[in-house]
Amino acid sequence: MHVSISAEHLFSLFGIPVSNTMLTALVASFLLVIFSYFATRRMKKIPSGMQNFFEWGIEQLFQLVENVMDDRKLAFRFFPLIATFFFFILVSNWMGLLPGFGSIGFYEHGALVPYFRSATADLNTTLAFAMISVIIIQIAGIAALGFRHYGKKFFNFSSPINFFVGLLELISEFAKIISFSFRLFGAVLAGEILLTVITGLVPYVLPLPFMGLELFIGAVQALVFVLLTMVFLKIAMAAQEH
């Protein structure tokens, strides 16, 4: 059994290395665009079929955002970001369960290089998500409280204790990037390894319940990513007590 932690290099395009996860990230984006196009192609007042299904999904997600943010205006402002994160991570997680992912490829130096690998099973993708999320959180905090007030959370010279607390807050902002990226990456990669091991042990029937488990975990991880983003956004935008 061979497991690669990092994404495999496929080919180079104008000197830029292209890995298999970049390919699947593109495929996932195209899938989302195509689905959205067909869902909204013939919009009707009374939805049916695909439009109905998509409206239901968007509505459920919006209700969740509204519940967590506790404010309809804030929910409207951040919903596009949250929904993009959610649907992209969800599609990427679930794409990794399709047959052919990790099994179709070519041999290089005696190791299989698969053409497809779930986009979230690559630390680069999840790190990019985490950095976007944390930077947006900082921007939202500054926009809501003002630069001086928000900065006081991290650089506070009023007393030694407050200075130390601010230092810890600063470290925890960077820890957010690490925890966001490693959680998603670890959960998806662990799921793929689990499926590989189970399929290697008993190829028939037994992997089926684990497939269901991975479907569940893929959805939960996407949900957790957006939930945490929303909670941190709320904390960043809340005025500090003195």
Binding site: N67, S179, F182, G186, A187, L189, I193, V224, L227, L228
Partner: peptide
């Protein structure tokens, strides 16, 4: 509401085990 908070807390806790898993891998 409790279910949402439970999933959130469980995921935060589970993440610690996932760090160990990633490190061991």
């Amino acid at each position: 509401k409790i279910f949402t908070m439970m999933i959130l807390g469980a995921a935060l806790t589970e993440a610690l085990a996932i760090y160990a898993l990633v490190l061991s891998l």
